[in-house]
Structures are given as C-alpha cells and as structure tokens.
C-alpha cells in the first residue's frame, strides 16, 4: 500500500505539472482527492492491514493528500499569475500617443501683469481702487494741479466728449476721488489699475487706448526715502533681484519733487546697448511726492499729511519684459499672441 500511495503521489504530481488551466487542475483535484478518488480507496482497504501499520499508512495517506493539495494550490497560483500577465500584456497601450486635451484658455498678458502688481502692493497693505473711464475734467486735471490752460495739458492730448467730460488720460483721477472720500483722514493706500485713453494715432509704439497702474500712499510723515524703498522692492520683485533702480528728477504737475525711475538694463547689465539707448538704464515709471495743492484740493492738511504717488504702463513693462515689438498686439487679440502668455 505504501508503494501504491507513492505511485499515486507521483502520478498526481506529474499531472499537475502538465496541467494547462484551472479546469484541468480542478479535474485532478476531484480525481485524486475526491471521495471516490484512489487515495480514499487505499484508506478504505486499510482494514486488511495489521493493526500496528494502520496509523503509519493513514499518516502517509494524509501526507500524500497534503502534498498533492499544496501542489495544486501552487499550480493554481502560477496559472492565475500567468493569466493576469497575459491580460496585462494584452492591455498595454502606446503611451507616446497624445493625451486627451481639455480646451484651455488663459489670461491676457496685461491682466496677468496688473494682477501681479496688485498682489505685490496688497502684500504691502494697499487696496485696489477703481473709477470711471469717462471722467470729469475736474478729476482728470484740475484736482491734480492741472488747471485749464496749463501747458502740461499738452503732454496728454485728450479725447474730450464735452468741455467737461473726457476719456480719462490716466488713472490718477481715481486717486483724487479716493482721497476726497477719505475726508482728510489718512492713511490712504491704494493701487489704481485701469484703461486710459489719449489722442494718439495707433502705431507700433502708440495706442489710443492703453492701461495704467498707479499707486498712492498718503499718511502722516511719508518721506521721499519711503518712495524710494517701495519702488525698489517693486522693481526687484517684478524685474528680478539683480536689477538696480535709479531715480532721476523729473516733472509732473501733481507731484513735487517728481522722479522718473529707471532700472538697470537686463541686456547689457548697465554697460550700454541698443535696448537701453547706450545709457545702461531703462525708464520704467514716473513718481513723486504728492503736490500740496493736490492734497489740499482733496481735503487733506498738507502740513500734517504727505504722500507719494507713482504710475506706470503695463504695456511698456510687458514689452520690455518679453521683447514685444508692437503695442497693437495687445488689442488685436491674435490667438497666437494670447496663448503665449498662459503661464507668464
């Protein structure tokens, strides 16, 4: 019987090795380990054996069953694994084909730039103030120390609608309006972005409509050195930490002293090149200490309060930053232009 069991074991094991699929394995399991299987049969014939041999044979039979069962399980696992691998192999795809693209849009470069500048000043405690694009002569000029007939009005030839109404030529009237609302009490810390208009013929460097962003800070004891410090951190954050700034005296009717700010030329690092007209510097913005007449007209006591203001053109900044050659690109909305700045 011992031999028979050993024989059965070898037979089953070799069948397991040869088995090709789960169905065959199942048949082997039923035929060898089932109730009608040969091992059960061997056990049934154990009555004929001497008493002392019975437990030995019984144990042996169990061992054989166990071995066969284990092998069956192992084989099953192997077959499962193979089937899975075959399935995965069949499912593989060409990962180099293009992906399923969602339609994607993006911001206008000017909006993006304006938001960046807004956020920078919000971080310094500024609020964003807005105002009408069709302005009263008073807010656009007079409240900014530009009375009628002032020669500096020539500097910004304007689109008038009536004698008293015009398309604003800068966003400064928002400053005048905001100061007026504060009724002589500081601080006023605002940044004013928006569209402005001038009587220019559109060409590569002129646009009758463009954007501006201006800032105003009025409080007790605001110093000119504060203006310098604030402009310096603005320039470094927008243009890069390695850029230097230079302030030059200039003239604007609404500020005194007035300054123009240059940044060092990125192209030549101050050595002088064609981009900076060989000066090493590029003009970025105008600024100054708020003229006492402007403070007074808005209801502030110019003995107690002082302030600074600055203004810049996002188009100019964008053109310098990205080397854009024609200002009209900002308004023709060529999608080949717009899409270049989605990640700007």
């Amino acid at each position: 019987m011992r031999e028979r069991l050993e024989e059965l074991k070898q037979e089953a094991l070799s069948k397991i090795v040869e088995a090709k699929d789960t169905k065959q394995l199942q048949e082997i399991r039923v035929s060898y380990l089932g109730k009608k299987g040969p091992i059960t049969e061997v056990l049934r014939g154990m009555g004929k054996l001497p008493k002392e041999e019975r437990p030995v044979i019984g144990q042996l039979a169990n061992e054989v069953r166990e071995v066969i069962s284990k092998e069956l399980d192992a084989k099953q696992e192997q077959l499962d694994q193979e089937a899975l691998e075959a399935k995965l192999a069949e499912e593989s795809i060409d990962v180099t084909l293009p992906g399923y693209q969602q339609p994607s849009g993006g911001p206008h470069l000017l909006t993006k730039l304006i938001e960046d500048i807004e956020d920078l000043f919000i971080g310094m405690g500024f609020e964003v103030a807005e105002g009408p694009e069709v302005e009263q002569d008073y807010y656009n000029f007079e409240a900014l120390n530009l009375p009628k007939g002032h020669p500096a009005r020539d500097m910004q030839d304007s689109f008038y609608i009536t004698e008293e109404l015009l398309m604003r030529t800068h966003t400064s009237p928002v400053q005048a309006r905001t100061m007026e609302k504060h009724k002589g009490k500081g601080p006023v810390k605002i940044i004013c972005p928006g569209k402005v208009y001038r009587r220019d013929t559109d060409d590569a460097t002129h646009s009758h409509q463009f954007t501006q962003i201006e800032g105003l800070y009025v409080d007790e004891n605001v110093r000119m050195s504060d203006l310098k410090g604030v402009l310096n951190s603005f320039a470094k954050q927008i243009f890069g930490q390695n850029r230097e700034i230079r302030l030059r005296p200039s003239f604007f009717p609404f500020t005194e002293p007035s300054v123009e700010m240059d940044i060092s030329c990125k192209m030549c690092h101050g050595e002088g090149c064609s981009v900076c007209k060989h000066s090493g510097w590029i003009e970025i913005l105008g600024a100054g200490m708020v003229h006492p007449n402007v403070l007074r007209m808005a209801g502030f006591d110019s003995e107690i309060y002082s302030g600074f203001a600055f203004g810049m053109g996002p188009e100019r900044i964008a053109m310098l930053k990205y080397g854009i050659e024609d200002i009209r690109h900002f308004y023709t909305n060529d999608v080949r232009f717009l899409k270049q700045f989605h990640h700007a």
């Binding site: 500024f126 964003v128 810390k189 110093r223 504060d226 230079r246």
Partner: peptide
C-alpha cells in the same frame, strides 16, 4: 543726489490691504 537718498519703508499706520 537722488542716489544719496536712503531706502526706507513707510513707518505709518499698518493695515491689511486686499481685494473687495
């Protein structure tokens, strides 16, 4: 010389700022 002016930051009232 505007070059000689120091760089300072405003020392006045501090407020949070932000968008409406």
């Amino acid at each position: 010389g505007y070059d000689q002016l120091p760089y300072t930051l405003p020392e006045g009232t501090s407020n949070a700022g932000g968008l409406t």
